[in-house]
Write a protein that binds this DNA or RNA. Sequence first.
DNA 1: TTGTATGCGTTATCAT
DNA 2: ATGATAACGCATACAA
Lengths: 344, 344
Amino acid sequence: MVTIKDVSKKCGVSAATVSKALNGYSDIGEETAEYVRSVAKEMGYLPNATARALKTNRSNNLGVLFIDKTQSGLTHEYFSSVLNSFKVEAERHGFDITFISKNIGQFRMSYYEHCKYRNCDGVVVASVNFKDPDVIELVNSEIPTVTIDHVFDNRTAILSDNVECVCQMVRYLYDCGHRHIAYIHGEDTSVTQKRLASFHKTCKELGIDPPDEYVKQAIYHDPKVSGLATRELLALPVRPTCIMYPDDFSFIGGMNEIERHGLEIPKDISVVGHDGIYLSQVLRPRLTTIKQDTQALGREAAAKLIEAVVSPKTFIPQQIIVPGHIIEGKSVQKLNSTISIVDL
Amino acid sequence: MVTIKDVSKKCGVSAATVSKALNGYSDIGEETAEYVRSVAKEMGYLPNATARALKTNRSNNLGVLFIDKTQSGLTHEYFSSVLNSFKVEAERHGFDITFISKNIGQFRMSYYEHCKYRNCDGVVVASVNFKDPDVIELVNSEIPTVTIDHVFDNRTAILSDNVECVCQMVRYLYDCGHRHIAYIHGEDTSVTQKRLASFHKTCKELGIDPPDEYVKQAIYHDPKVSGLATRELLALPVRPTCIMYPDDFSFIGGMNEIERHGLEIPKDISVVGHDGIYLSQVLRPRLTTIKQDTQALGREAAAKLIEAVVSPKTFIPQQIIVPGHIIEGKSVQKLNSTISIVDL
DNA sequence: TTGTATGCGTTATCAT
DNA sequence: ATGATAACGCATACAA
């Protein structure tokens, strides 16, 4: 391994000079600096990130905390897409990323401890149980954090526009003639609360009043639970004409249940999802869903986190709302011309 | 930050004693050791991985090199699944993982340089262009590596059993009565070569001889290219009765093309995929495909890599073959009773 | 059994 | 403009 010392020897200058030259300090003669750089390059010198981190207390390493309830880990398409975008942006700025978890080896450390242990400059937090004390400890620590889809006091958050998107979706369904809209939602999180409130508010504005049994709690990214909820909905005396799912992936459970009942989408029942993952667009019929801009989500999260790391003094926490939009598939029946009169 | 020094002060012993006590050295009095441990815990002491790495030249950090041709990054379901399993096993052994890439910040470093820069103890390499000089540089370096689905001389490799799986699949199709089997394969890699050879060998054993125009080159994980290949196959005077795809994801391109021709799967044409990703099982009809054991692939890769890192002296590189199996879906027509006589 | 001293590779401070 | 030196936190060889 070629160190700064090797370079300094070869150059006939001190290690300090090499360090300064390589890091672009202004108090080094231009010729010397140029010479040092050329020699360093020629020798294949590479700074040792470990030593540098020890000295500067900056690791150029960002932690990623992604733990979803169903343990899908990286195979969770929505979050892997956000993460990928985060990674690209982070690397563009010279930051690497490391996964944070509990139970590293035989040690059991908290997320915060893991971050300290690894000297993470900052952490992005997504898809976790935000009520977990360990998550709260981390977010309230001195380590800069950015959360995705959850707001903590005086912390930066990147949020997809759940209220607006659900509103648009309900209106779309209304325009298609649907009056009996059921909503299977995820577990109780702030995202769920927003979506649910938007659902109810929009329904009210449109003059429809979904009965309690049309609103079912399920779990995000868990097809089985959504399948069960679907079964209950299909058994109702007045069957909904459309079911909204917590997310595209969960819909698969509903799809299987609907098939099992011998029903056809959208002829017999309409469905919509949420997220707009690739999967949703290769199903037949193509799923009508709410596309979340995972690219922007990940990119913004990285950009803001790095800003917080690099300029802690001037950084002001903020909430960034990323808009989404409806992808119109073939899973919603247009009822207008046929039975809308019956419903009105 | 509470350091080893803080602990030593509070304990009234030297830093060396604390270090030894915490790391379970035997030359420390049991009471002292116990006392030191309790104080350390009480003070919330955590070793600083950076300092430790600098001293010991071990980072407990594994690099991950995953760069597929279509830039899908982490959204590549097959590899994200392998990676997730790798991550779980690595963490179980107390290793963190960091992504390796070129172009970190304004620097442009090779993969090898990035690994050195980050002091990675070892690297898992998958889904890259194995002919890339930068990949070869890394694999031939002193850093322990494990490759997935590619063999380098005197290096550990984890391989899914492509030869056997393709053989089984061709025989399955034969048993279903198919004699006109087309194969759209991925770009030229050792995996592709194995699959292709197995395809031809098995065909020969079965006494069928696929014409050249039945074998098309496409690109892994690229629906568009496989779609084009499908179009060419469908335009042939003697249309194949079954098409084998490079992977489940690529099949989507074929699916769209087949739909566009107004053909129905499997009535008008049969199809099979490769990988057995989740997606393949929620399509309708469910895709018949070759399931690769991504769990085992990732787990074995991590286990072997860690073994190579921890016991470099005794470690012997080896090739581990992970078996796969056919998932029987509904995408293959059983021709036996209907037109098999015509074909014979 | 415990402590002292040293150095891993780097950067920062302060002389020169 | 450049260099000597210390220090980051830890582990270890060696002395006590």
